[in-house]
Measured scan of single mutants.
Amino acid sequence: MAMNGTITTWFKDKGFGFIKDENGDNRYFHVIKVANPDLIKKDAAVTFEPTTNNKGLSAYAVKVVPL
Score class of each variant (00 low, 15 high):
S58N: 05
F16M: 04
N36R: 06
G24A: 04
T8D: 07
N23L: 09
K42A: 07
W10Y: 08
D21M: 02
F29K: 00
D21W: 02
K33C: 15
H30L: 09
I7W: 02
V64Q: 00
V31D: 05
I7S: 00
G24V: 01
F18R: 03
T9S: 14
Y28I: 07
E49Q: 15
Y60R: 15
A61P: 02
V65F: 10
K41H: 11
A35G: 08
W10K: 01
I32M: 15
E22D: 07
G15L: 07
V62K: 00
A35I: 15
N4G: 09
L57T: 03
T8A: 08
V34I: 05
R27M: 02
T6Q: 08
A59W: 03
E22S: 09
N36V: 04
K12Y: 08
T9P: 01
I7M: 01
K55I: 10
K55W: 15
V31R: 14
V31N: 05
K41N: 06
P50V: 04
N26P: 05
A35D: 11
N23K: 11
T47K: 08
N53W: 08
S58Q: 11
V31W: 10
K12G: 09
D13H: 12
K14F: 11
K33L: 13
I7T: 01
V34T: 06
G24H: 05
R27C: 03
T8S: 09
I19E: 00
D43W: 15
Y60E: 15
D38S: 11
A2V: 15
F11K: 05
N26Y: 15
M1A: 12
L39V: 06
F11H: 07
G5I: 02
G15K: 08
M1C: 13
K55M: 12
D25E: 10
N4V: 11
Y28D: 00
V65R: 08
A44N: 05
F18M: 05
I7G: 00
N23C: 12
N54D: 12
L39A: 10
M1K: 14
A35R: 10
K41Q: 11
W10L: 04
V62S: 01
T6K: 11
V34C: 11
L67D: 13
I19H: 00
P50H: 03
M1V: 13
S58P: 03
I40D: 00
K14R: 12
V62C: 03
P50F: 03
K63P: 01
A45R: 14
P37H: 05
Y28T: 03
A45F: 13
K33Q: 15
V64L: 05
G15F: 06
P66G: 12
K55E: 07
N4Q: 12
D25T: 06
H30D: 12
A45E: 08
K12I: 08
E22R: 06
K42R: 11
T52L: 09
A35W: 12
P37G: 04
L39T: 06
D13F: 09
T6I: 14
A35P: 03
E49W: 15
T6S: 06
D43L: 10
N26W: 12
A2N: 12
D38W: 15
M3F: 06
G5T: 01
V62L: 04
M3Q: 05
P66C: 12
E49L: 15
M1Y: 11
G56A: 05
T8N: 07
T47F: 07
H30R: 07
P37I: 05
K63D: 05
N54K: 14
K20G: 04
F11C: 09
F18V: 07
F48M: 02
V65I: 13
V62M: 03
K14N: 06
T51Q: 11
T52I: 09
F18H: 03
K33R: 15
T52P: 05
L67N: 13
T8G: 05
I19P: 00
P66A: 13
D38N: 11
G15E: 05
I7H: 00
G5N: 01
G56E: 04
F29I: 03
G5L: 03
G56P: 04
K12H: 09
V64W: 02
T6L: 08
E22L: 07
Y60Q: 15
R27A: 02
F18I: 09
K41C: 11
K63M: 12
F48S: 00
K55Q: 10
P66D: 13
F18T: 06
A44Q: 06
K20P: 00
Y28H: 06
K55T: 08
V62F: 02
A44V: 10
N36P: 02
I19C: 02
N54C: 11
T52Y: 12
N23F: 10
V31G: 05
G17R: 02
I19V: 04
I40H: 01
K20W: 08
A59D: 03
K41L: 07
I40M: 05
E22A: 09
P37M: 05
G15Q: 08
L57E: 04
F18Y: 09
V31F: 09
N4D: 06
N4W: 13
S58D: 04
F16T: 03
L39H: 10
I40Y: 04
A2M: 13
N23W: 08
I40P: 01
Y28K: 03
F11L: 07
G5F: 02
G5D: 00
F16P: 00
D21I: 02
H30T: 12
A59R: 01
K20N: 07
K42S: 06
E49C: 15
D21L: 03
K20S: 07
I7A: 00
V31K: 14
D21N: 00
F48H: 00
G5R: 00
Y28S: 05
L57C: 05
F48L: 03
D21F: 02
A59K: 01
P50T: 04
E49M: 15
I7K: 00
K33G: 14
G17T: 01
A44S: 07
G56F: 09
V46K: 01
K42M: 10
